[in-house]
Nucleic acid binder design. Structure first.
Lengths: 157, 157
DNA sequence: ATGGTATGGTTGAGCATTCAATCAACCGGG
DNA sequence: CCCGGTTGATTGAATGCTCAACCATACCAT
């Protein structure tokens, strides 16, 4: 092993290799979300968060989900989702209904127009996802990335 | 090789393994940026984008950089940076000066108060970065991730 | 020098998100 | 039964971001 000119890990700061990796991570994360938003905004007139709502609803039974569940699935805060659904309702893409099982609950239902909207937006979105992610990684690399991200998104431990 | 029940890659959609990886990517990217913002907002009263501006300035010669360069380094649009610097100026953390070399240019200078602010915010931020990234990956994993992200952030090709 | 174009930067409007406050309905134990 | 706490969802205010329009200066060719 190498001699140790400084403590094994100086927890207070990042060394050069860490610094480099961290900048990569930020560049990737910020760049990805930005390009996703830009493409969807340009081609479908909605941000990625809205697309996610429509996409999840389109695959749900009856194209219906409780706000609750919809927020969890789209990784959204309740407030954010509530605002989003209100605007999607304004566009006629989603409809709200009272939940029959639970008086507190609200169901979000994807309308036919909403389904058409997500269907129209999907190909361009998928093409972007391929361009930004899958076209750049071989199959083994994709497996590596899957393993790494699985470790990274695991709940705090 | 396996028999091929469908075309090698159906470019129009994502298969199950791709779908799974894609969801991981979104969960990681969105989650990371959100937790970064949350921690900095709670502990230092600023979003991550503002911290980045202060941090970059703090390492620049004379703690000074042209808006131009500062935008590139912080991966920000000119407009975003301009708004950000205006607000940082309001807090007394940054000062604007005309660029002597180029009549169009503007220099952003980190004030002493700004330096103190970033110095105070840094430890908590670094701790978060460790908690979210470095503490979760072994050294070989970190090298793997570095290689993968390098491929992913490369300019379109 | 002069007109045209490119570059650097700012601005205001509009939109999305967060945060805290709020309200209604459910659920458990007394 | 009902009371306290919890859960589901919404709202308005404040903040940060994007987009397009804009102005000023610099560069370049004629």
């Amino acid at each position: 092993m190498a001699r140790a000119p400084r403590p094994p890990t100086d927890a207070a700061w990042l060394d050069d290799r860490e610094q480099h990796l961290w900048r990569l991570v930020i560049a990737f994360t910020a760049g990805l979300l930005e390009q996703l938003d830009t493409q969807l905004q340009a081609d479908a007139g909605m941000p990625h968060a809205y697309y996610a709502v429509l996409a999840v609803l389109s695959e749900a039974p009856e194209r219906t989900l409780r706000m609750n569940e919809l927020a969890r699935t789209t990784l959204s805060s309740p407030s954010r989702l509530s605002h989003a659904v209100r605007r999607l309702e304004d566009r006629g893409w989603v409809r709200r209904t009272d939940c029959p099982d639970d008086g507190r609950g609200t169901l979000a239902v994807l309308t036919d127009a909403g389904y058409a909207a997500v269907e129209a937006a999907a190909p361009g979105h998928v093409a972007t996802v391929r361009r930004l992610l899958f076209d750049r990684l071989s199959a083994p690399q994709q497996r590596q990335l899957d393993a790494l991200l699985t470790a990274l998104v695991a709940p705090a431990g």
